[in-house]
Structure formats: C-alpha cells, structure tokens
Design a protein around this nucleic acid. Structure first.
Length: 814
DNA sequence: GGCTCCCGGGG
DNA sequence: GTGTACGGGAGCC
C-alpha cells in the first residue's frame, strides 16, 4: 500500500519498459516516479469484422532482428471518431515502446486490416495526453517508495491525477555560457580548448577560468586547467540543483562542446537527475537533454515564435530587441585567442566580464520569455523544453492532439514524405490587396478585422471533417465558394477550439483593460493572451501546411476566399458610406476620412458588424494625419506593403521602405527617412527638398560623419567563390590581405573612394578610410538620390534642383 | 526559371 | 526509436 503526495512534473521520458517522471514535491524534494501500468498501444482500422480480427491480433507474435519474440500484450475493441464517423477499432496494446513499430508493420500485413493508426506519437507525449497531465502543474499521486537516495526519492507510481492546471512559475533557473579558443575556422572541440565558463542565476554569478590575472572581480574563480574547469562547472550545477538550465545556441554549441571536451579527459558530465550524462541528440533538430530538468536553448523560441525585428538571430541582436541591451562589447574570435596568449590583466578581466554578461543575457531572456512559454505549456500540455523548441505548426498540432482526447477523435497520421511533396504542389490564392494610388494623403483612417482568419474559421465552421457534409446537402451549409460548404448544424473540432481560444482571449483583453501595468497580474495576463493569440493565428497556416496531420487544402482555400470576400465587402460598403478607399491588404482598409465625424465612423462600424457573422468583427484601428504611398520601382502603380504614416503624436511608421533595411549607407537611410518625415509633416516636398539640398552640400564639403558613409555587407561565402567582383567582395579581399579570417558570415564595412573606374576598384575598408577619401559624386548620386528621387517625382519636383539647381525646369519650386 | 545544396546559432 | 528539422537564400545549369 503506497502513500499519497503532491508534486510538479518537470521532465518525463521512458526507459526500455516504463514511463519515468522527474519532478519535485512542494517541499522541493526531488522525485523520480516510475509508472509500470501504462502500456504503449496503437489502433487497427479493420476492413471486416473487428471482433474476429481482434482475436487474430491478440495471439499475434513475431521475431525481431535480434531473434527475440515480440508479442501483442492485449487487444480491445474501441469506438473512436474518424473525421465525423464513430468507427470500431482494434486497440493493440504492446509491452514496450520499442515494440510498436515492428508490430504495426507486421500486423498491417494480416488479412482484414485496413490501416494502422496512431503509432507515430512519442510515448511520453502519449502518456501526458492520455493522463491529462500538464507539466509544471500540481499533481496528486500515490505510490510506493522503492529507493531513497540523498537527493531523490524513487517511487513506483500507483495513481496520478492533475489537480491544478496553473503552471508553477517559481522555478530555479541558471544560465551558462562558455568561451573557447579557435583556430581559423569555427571552434572544433577535437582541438580547441574551453578557456572560460560562466553561470548566472538569481543569487549566482560565477566565471571559471584557468589563466590567473590580477584584480580579479569576486565572481571569478581560478582553476588549474580545462579539466578542472569542467569538474568545477559540473560541481556548481550539481550544487545549484536548478530546474531549468538555459543557454543561447547551447543545443548546437555549448553543450556538445562541453560533452566532447569532457570525453577527452574521461570526465563524466553526469548531471542528470538520475546521474545520467548530457544527451546530445543529433536526430532531427539537434537538442541537448539533461535528464530530469529542462535545458532550454532560448535561440529556438526567439527564432521560431517571437516576431522580432532582427536580420540575424544572434544573442546580441535578440537581447537588444527584447531586453534593450546587448553584449558587453563586440569581440572578434581572433581577439579571444590574442587576449589569452598575451594575457594582460585588464584584457583577461574584460573577457571574464564578457563571458558573465553572455550568461546574464541568456538568463534575463529566459525570465522575460518564461511567462509566455509557461502559458503555452499549460495550453498544449508538453514539457517546457519541448515547447521552447517548437515551431508554430507543432504548437498547433499538439494543441489539437491534446484536445482530440476529449472529443474521442482519432489523431491523423503524419503525412509521408511523398504525401508532403504532393501537397507542396498545391498553391492557392491568399489575401486581397487593393493597390494604392501613389501619393500623399491627409486624414487617413484604418479599419481592420480583429483576428480575421481565426474568426472566419469559427464563424464558418471551417474544419476538414465538416466539408460538404451529408446533413447540409439539401438545406445548405456555410457557403465558402468553390463548390465547398461547411456543416451548419454541428460545430467542427477545429472551429470549436478556435472559438474557445477567441473567447478566452477576449475575456483576458477585457480584464487587461482594467488592469494597471504595475499590477503583478499584468505580465501574466499578457502572456496568456499572447499564447492564445499564437495558437489562434497559426491555425489557418497549419491547415495549409503540407506537413500537417490535419492538412486540408479545401479548408485553407476556403479561409482565404472568405477573407477576400469580407475585405471586399468592407471596401464596397465604405465607398457606399462615403469613404474614399485608399489601400487594403488582406484584413485592413485605409480610407480618407474627408468630412466624416467620429460618430460617422462608429455608425459605419455598426453597419458592417451587424452583417458580419460572429465572432467576425471589424475594428477602427487608428487615425493618421498623413500618409504616403510609394510608387513601385517600375513606376505608375502603388507598391504593395510600402508606405509611410504619420501618427497623431508625430511618430513615423515606415513599412517596407527599402532604406530601412539592406546594404545602404546610414547617410542614404537618414536622407530617405527624414525626407519622408518632412513630406508627411508639411504635406509637400519643399522642406524635404531644402533638407536634401543641405545634406548634399554637406556631403560636397565633406562635413559628414565617416560612419554614415560606411556600407556594411555580410559575405554569404568565401571571397574566392564569388563569380562577380562586386564592391563588397573587393572590400572583403582587402580585409583578407590585412589578415582577417574572411569567410561566409564575415561582415565587411567599406566606403567608396575618389577616382575613376569601376566602383569595385574604388572601395576602401571603413577602418582605413579618412574623410578626404570618399567619392562625393557616388554618395550624392548613388546613395542619397537613389534613396529619395521617387519621393520628389511624386510631386513633380525636379530632382536636379536638389543637387544645386542647375536646371530651368520646375519654375515655382525653390 | 527550377532544382539542389547549404546554412543557421556558437568562438 | 510511437524516427530521421525546416525554411530560405544562393549557386548552378
């Protein structure tokens, strides 16, 4: 007879036979729970009598490639919903997770078998779904203590139940980072050495290093060599007993590197709960697991889920974007070697600090992102480390899998690679775009649909199993065009879930409106809303994603078709109401306000929303005093997704304008941005023209900052691999001659110098250039003018005048 | 144009 | 191991 206890599940896996749960009690005692009563299974869809087939399968056994007998453990007849039909299935229960693939392949050959189902669900995930357990949420359990160790109780589980679905947020987190020496190429653990390692936590700052230097800060701990560094790092982690270990790029770099170096010295990095080694998984996505706790490589979540305005997902830029601060300083890999060799006190000191700050950034990123990740854990029910590495599609997929249990729905299989390939050939239309007439406009209102695609899914019952149902054939379902309709009698699986997510999100929004940002609940509520939004907004994409289990081309097509229908309806109604439509894209419409009053706008929304099916809703997004729609490069037409807006409080919104990105000099970017801003604020080109004229004057008399002239480009390959010698390649060759290790990814910064001949023959590295070097004509013509001429052409302003006014055109312009 | 190959992050 | 990422950009023909 066991004892009752409560605990939080942190990690879960299976050994060859059983599920193992790693967690901690309310008193923070670590526990390992072994569940011997949960067996792997899959389903057989019969094409004849299920009872006869079940009897047949029950006695089935085969021999594996090691000569062992592998038998079916038990069978059951169960009813499950396949698409929309209750179907009799044979549930085949087997002894070990490893038996599933062999038995399903062999049983598939038996007569009377139509297909095998649900054999492609990882065992520990199956367990969580079937038991309804949510990681990090309080569970009650009963079990028998089978072994008590200093750090952990090992319990054989008899009973398990979730009692609170709110994940615990009080987790012990430590971040870590290593620095290594490296020869010319990327660091290689076979030859390169770890010289520093840092850990950072709530009350923890430590840098381990094996070259002594004076005036070391108190967080520095000297060790005798790399071996001792590894041992000390291991000791620190074991002492700290973290729930979460976080790094940046640690799946691919830090942990594999540590493991490889430890192997060289014969050191065992057995820091798992159960004394197991770090497990570097090279199948699929490389991930490093530390058994019993959660290793997070926060770069995955930054890349996959967060919508960040960065061009590369480096720790520095991601931290800058999320935390508003970056690395301590920019450090070339070559410099690390140099610092280590020369070994000046001051430089070693700053290297140690650099190393600590990297850990600190990973730690703070984790703290900042954890509330959202925990809400996704709650919603989807998979371990934190899994959620951290998932893409949108996987989040939706597992949200659906978790919820298929309550609907007794059979989980569709993952498509085969040939199926994925076939699906990829299908293309379909996306959102509707109303092209803008290029030009300057004043008093612009923007309407947009609140969650257009999720609200279409919910309102039109868009679900694969509800397409062209028998029950609505005569009396009409929800028409989606293309001879497709969706059932109007019974809510589908996906619309039901999406409607629920929308409702919950709306409720949280309402609460948030009443909550002050200083309220401790505020961030928590925002995280909840963000998690719900992420799932809702990804569902449309998931239905059209070729790798999806619930792939439905017809559903995806219907969603965009309905989206086009509704935005076009809004455009038509807006015109009827007396608005002039300027620009629309998928779910938004820009209109001229004209003589319309706020109450007219309200009335218009009322008219539209009274005809929209719930939960579809058009909202008044914002008002802009001025807007500029920019011409396409070829001219004549308004470019899609390229415009500038002036906000009520004088702010500037730039969308798709080329100078805000790409390989332009800061000079050109500033010129374009300021010109746009002046045009928007003044309603005409005069001020902007004056500004550009003055800027060009400054360029001509060399009164500009050298760094504004630098053009930075990142190499995509070695210089020798480029066929054409473009300026950045020429610049990279100069860097190579200076002894830089120039390879793919190298960022080269150069200016264009005086002289004649090709541009590529006139490059100079920014670091070698002086203010006398740059070519005035190039920076005026190819940087400033190229960035701004379209803006002036829109007003028929003679662009020649900007450069000194040697023109007779454009009388009246000054 | 397609099709294939390679890369990301890390030092 | 209830398996074999993924999406985009550049190079190649």
């Amino acid at each position: 007879m066991g004892f009752d206890f409560q605990f939080y599940l942190l990690d879960i896996d299976s050994d060859t036979d059983n599920i193992r749960i790693f967690g901690f009690t309310k008193e923070r005692r670590r526990v390992i729970l072994i569940d011997k009563n949960f067996h792997p299974y899959f389903y057989i869809l019969p094409n004849s009598d299920a009872i006869v087939l079940a009897e047949n399968i029950k006695s089935f056994s085969t021999i594996d490639d090691k000569g062992n007998n592998v038998a079916v453990k038990d069978v059951q007849i169960v009813n499950k919903k396949i698409r929309d039909d209750i179907t009799k299935l044979v549930k085949v229960i087997v002894s070990k997770p490893g038996d599933v693939q062999l038995l399903r392949r062999e049983i598939a050959k038996l007569p009377g078998v139509n297909s095998c189902e649900e054999y492609d669900i990882r065992f520990y995930r199956r367990y969580l779904v079937d038991k309804g357990i949510v990681p990090l949420s309080l569970c009650k359990a009963r079990g028998e203590l089978i072994k008590q160790e200093a750090d952990v109780d090992i319990i054989e589980l008899e009973y398990l139940e979730l009692i609170d679905s709110e994940p615990i947020s009080d987790l012990k987190i430590i971040a870590f980072d290593i620095e290594t020496l490296c020869a010319k190429t990327t660091p290689n653990p076979k030859q390169d050495t770890i010289i520093l390692a840092s850990v950072y936590g709530k009350d923890l700052r430590k840098v381990l290093t094996w070259k002594r230097f004076g005036n070391a800060p108190n967080y520095v701990q000297f060790v005798d060599g790399e071996l001792e560094l590894l041992e000390e790092l291991k000791k620190t982690i074991l002492q700290q007993k973290p729930d979460v270990i976080v790094g940046y790029g640690s799946d691919n770099f830090d942990l594999p590197f540590l493991v490889e170096r430890a192997k060289k010295y014969g050191v065992s990095l057995n820091i798992g709960f159960d004394g197991s080694e770090i497990d570097i998984n090279h199948r699929g996505i490389t991930s490093a697991k530390i058994k019993g706790l959660q290793h997070l490589d926060i770069s995955h979540f930054a890349r996959n889920i967060l919508d960040l305005n960065v061009d590369r997902f480096k720790l520095d830029s991601v931290a800058q974007e999320i935390l508003g601060k970056g690395k301590l300083f920019k450090l070339n890999p070559e410099k690390i070697n140099e610092i280590w060799e020369v070994a000046l006190n001051e430089e070693l000191q700053s290297l140690a600090e650099y190393n600590l700050v990297d850990s600190q950034l990973a730690y703070e990123l984790c703290l900042k992102l954890l509330p959202t990740q925990l809400q996704l854990v709650k919603l989807i029910g998979l371990p934190l480390a899994d959620i951290n590495r998932m893409s949108y599609g996987q989040l939706v997929e597992w949200f659906l899998i978790r919820n298929s249990k309550t609907s007794n729905l059979m989980i569709p299989k993952k498509p085969s690679s040939s199926e994925i390939y076939a699906r990829q050939l299908n293309t379909y239309f996306g959102g509707f775009v109303l092209e803008p007439i290029p030009g300057f406009y004043q008093n612009v209102a923007v309407f947009d649909f609140r969650s257009l695609y999720p609200s279409i899914i919910a309102s039109h019952n868009v679900s694969p199993e509800k397409i062209n149902c028998e029950c609505c054939k005569l009396h009409g379902g929800m028409d989606a065009g293309n001879e497709v309709f969706f059932c109007s009698k019974k809510q589908g699986f996906i619309p039901g879930l999406v409607q629920d997510v929308i409702d919950r999100r709306n409720r949280i929004s309402a609460i948030l409106e009443q909550t002050s940002p200083e309220d401790p609940a505020f961030q928590e509520l925002k995280a909840r809303r963000y998690a719900l939004k992420t799932i809702a907004n990804s569902t449309y994409g998931y239905l059209g994603f070729p790798g999806s289990r619930w792939y439905s081309l017809e559903s995806a097509k219907a969603i965009t078709a309905l989206g086009r229908k509704y935005i076009q309806l809004v455009i038509k109604e807006a015109e009827l109401f007396g608005f002039k439509s300027l620009y629309g894209d998928t779910d938004s419409l820009f209109v001229l306000v004209g003589d319309k009053k706020p109450e007219d706008i309200k009335q218009f929304l009322g008219i539209i929303n009274s005809v929209l099916p719930k939960p579809m809703e058009l909202e008044y997004r914002d008002f802009y005093p001025a807007a500029l729609f920019i011409e396409t490069k070829s001219g004549g037409r308004g470019a899609k997704k390229r415009y500038a807006l002036l906000t009520k409080n004088g702010g500037l919104i730039l969308k798709g304008v080329e100078a805000i990105r790409g390989d332009w000099s800061a000079l050109a970017k500033k010129a374009q941005k300021t010109a746009i801003e002046l045009i928007l604020k003044e309603g005409g080109p005069q001020g902007a023209a004056l500004f550009i004229k003055e800027l060009i004057e400054k360029v001509k008399i060399r009164k500009v900052a050298l760094e504004d002239l630098s053009i930075s480009v990142r190499l995509t390959k070695a210089t020798s691999a480029y066929a054409a010698k473009s300026p950045h390649v020429a610049a990279a060759e100069l860097a190579e001659k200076k002894g830089y290790s120039v390879k793919a990814g190298f960022a080269v910064s150069y200016i264009i110098t005086n002289g004649t001949g090709k541009i590529s023959e006139r490059v100079k590295l920014s670091e070698d250039a002086t203010i006398e070097d740059y070519d005035i004509e190039y920076y005026v013509e190819h940087q400033i003018m190229r960035a701004v001429y379209k803006l002036f052409e829109m007003f028929n302003y003679p662009t020649e005048k900007l450069k000194g006014g040697q023109t007779t055109l454009g009388e009246g312009w000054n």
